[in-house]
């Protein structure tokens, strides 16, 4: 990998490519580690929430994934693809946690659970359109909710990272995203919120 791209007046580490950050962390650069965690922590959180882990389990899975990266740092074969490595590791952590929980606790009614949190979430959203949009999102099927929640990571994940996180072929992501967003618009239009206009310019 080449040197870090330095933007004018920008934090050079925020602009550095992932492979470069990993190399710096290997050399003991703590600021590079902070930049790496800032870049991918939302991706990891989104994987966990997309797989419907509770907040506490999601926090454990995210931390474990970072710890495994620290452990694997020097053996990482392709540092430039650290985002996909993190997504894959996170998926495994989430699956292992879900399996263990399933053995300890009787299977929960996820739809019920999702409905409860939807009510809580809405109290947080001041804009009525945002509330309606989130309600519509919660009305989608599990597959669409999972993919869209994953894509809500900030910064937006690459399709390679999404593919690793959801164990889904890269080529399937774009068409599924389109279909899910279409479904979302349908729910917005035909759902129980007739006062909601479609987005401006598409009436």
């Amino acid at each position: 990998m080449g040197p870090a791209i330095r933007g004018d007046g920008m934090d050079p580490l925020a602009e550095a490519d992932a492979g470069d950050l990993v190399e710096r962390v290997r050399d003991g650069d703590d600021a590079a580690w902070s930049a790496l965690t800032d870049r991918y922590v939302s991706l990891l959180w989104s994987v966990a929430r997309s797989m419907r882990l509770s907040e506490a389990d999601a926090a454990d899975a995210v931390q474990t994934t970072w710890l495994r990266l620290v452990e694997a740092l020097d053996g990482l074969r392709d540092p430039a693809r650290v985002g996909s490595w993190l997504a894959t590791t996170m998926r495994r952590e989430c699956l292992a946690l879900l399996r263990r929980r399933a053995k300890v606790v009787a299977a929960q009614d996820w739809d019920q659970l999702a409905g409860d949190t939807a009510a809580l979430d809405e109290a947080l959203l001041r804009q009525e359109r945002d509330a309606a949009l989130w309600r519509a999102f919660k009305g989608l099927g599990p597959r669409c909710q999972s993919l869209l929640r994953m894509l809500m990571a900030d910064p937006a994940p690459s399709y390679a990272e999404v593919s690793a996180a959801l164990d889904m072929p890269v080529g399937g992501i774009g068409p599924t995203r389109r279909r899910c967003l279409d479904n979302l618009r349908k729910i917005m239009l035909t759902g129980a919120h007739p006062f909601e206009a479609p987005s401006p310019g598409n009436a």
Partner: peptide, 27 residues
């Protein structure tokens, strides 16, 4: 639409501060 959803997710389901701190401390 995706950008709207990303903004809403940051409001209703943000990464908890403790998760960010734990990530930093992992090194």
């Amino acid at each position: 639409l995706m950008a709207d959803l990303r903004r809403i997710a940051a409001e209703v389901d943000p990464v908890p501060p403790g998760v960010v701190e734990a990530a930093r401390a992992a090194i």
